[in-house]
Simulated assay, not measured.
Amino acid sequence: MTAVPLSDDIALRIGLAARILPEIGVARLLRVLDSALGLPPTADTLERLRLRDLRQGADGALADLEPERLKDALAILRGEVGDTQPPPLPEPYVEGELPGSIRVACASDSGEQLDGHFGAARRFLVYQVSTAEIRLIEVREIDDGRAEDDRNSYRAGLIADCQLLYVASIGGPAAAKVVKVDVHPIRLGAGGEIREHLRALQDVLAGHAPPWLAKVMRQGVAPAGGAA
């Protein structure tokens, strides 16, 4: 395939989408986009891209891939996963400083927004949450190049010291990997400000927590610093 002129934004989208579809790669993904939309892809044409277009493009080159990964790639290609704000700075935290607290990982792509798809989020913001305080203790950047054969297990490992995962979107197989490391995934499709969701969690912690959450609270937390 001859070189395709791409804007910096579109080239970044395609590169990020290819990262979560490593068996496809950039060149093959461009062939799929050519089949579905024509080249060069633009912001306008990518906005019209649908899941079926990815599955059917280039004679079904992506048809056998897991639906959740295709959805994550689609979100990136359509520009729904952005990085308009840098992550916030973590706050000092000493283990045991917030008695009765739990640790919550939040999938994020921009600032302190809950806008991350599990398979495509660029970072996990990790908070220590008690009834009295919400403290951001770590920003864990994600490098899928270290995932070897299983991206979902790699990402789950990054948050294995947490008790809850807040995420905008997560597929069934990915959720199973998260549960396997004893983290409870909570999908909040509307997204929004992370701290708003955590304040709602504080209300639950202060009241009558459901049995699964009460059990988490009794178990306590592991030391900060996720798997790398």
Rank of each mutant, 00 (worst) to 15 (best):
G111L: 05
E112C: 13
L114N: 00
L114C: 04
D115K: 04
H117C: 08
F118T: 02
F118P: 01
G119P: 11
G119D: 06
A120K: 09
A120L: 09
F124K: 06
F124H: 11
L125A: 05
L125E: 06
L125G: 08
V126R: 03
V126C: 05
Y127K: 04
V129M: 10
S130H: 13
S130W: 10
T131K: 03
A132Q: 14
E133D: 14
E133S: 14
I134R: 03
I134K: 02
R135K: 06
R135S: 06
R135L: 13
L136R: 01
L136F: 12
L136V: 15
I137T: 14
E138H: 05
E138I: 01
E138K: 06
V139S: 03
V139E: 11
V139Q: 04
V139M: 05
I142P: 01
I142F: 00
I142E: 01
D143F: 02
D143A: 07
D143P: 10
D144F: 06
D144C: 08
D144S: 14
D144R: 12
D144W: 12
G145H: 06
A147D: 10
A147H: 13
A147N: 13
E148N: 07
E148D: 12
R151E: 10
N152Q: 14
N152L: 08
S153Y: 01
S153I: 01
Y154S: 05
A156M: 02
A156T: 02
G157V: 01
G157W: 03
G157Q: 06
G157E: 05
I159L: 07
I159K: 00
I159G: 07
I159Y: 10
I159E: 07
A160S: 11
D161I: 00
D161Y: 00
Q163Y: 00
Q163M: 04
L164E: 00
Y166G: 07
Y166N: 05
V167M: 06
A168S: 14
S169A: 15
G172P: 11
A174D: 05
A174G: 08
A175Q: 05
A176E: 12
V179I: 15
K180H: 04
K180S: 03
V181S: 00
D182N: 12
V183Q: 00
H184V: 03
R187E: 14
R187A: 11
R187V: 02
G189L: 08
G189R: 14
A190E: 15
A190Y: 14
A190W: 13
G191R: 13
G191A: 02
G191L: 11
G192K: 10
G192W: 09
E193G: 15
I194M: 07
I194D: 12
R195I: 07
E196V: 10
L198G: 07
R199H: 14
R199L: 15
L201S: 10
D203N: 15
D203I: 13
V204L: 12
L205F: 13
L205G: 11
L205D: 08
A206W: 06
A206Y: 08
G207H: 06
G207M: 04
G207I: 04
H208E: 15
A209C: 12
L213K: 15
L213D: 11
A214C: 10
A214V: 00
K215Q: 13
K215E: 15
K215H: 15
V216A: 12
V216D: 02
R218L: 09
R218G: 08
R218Q: 13
Q219I: 02
V221K: 05
A222S: 04
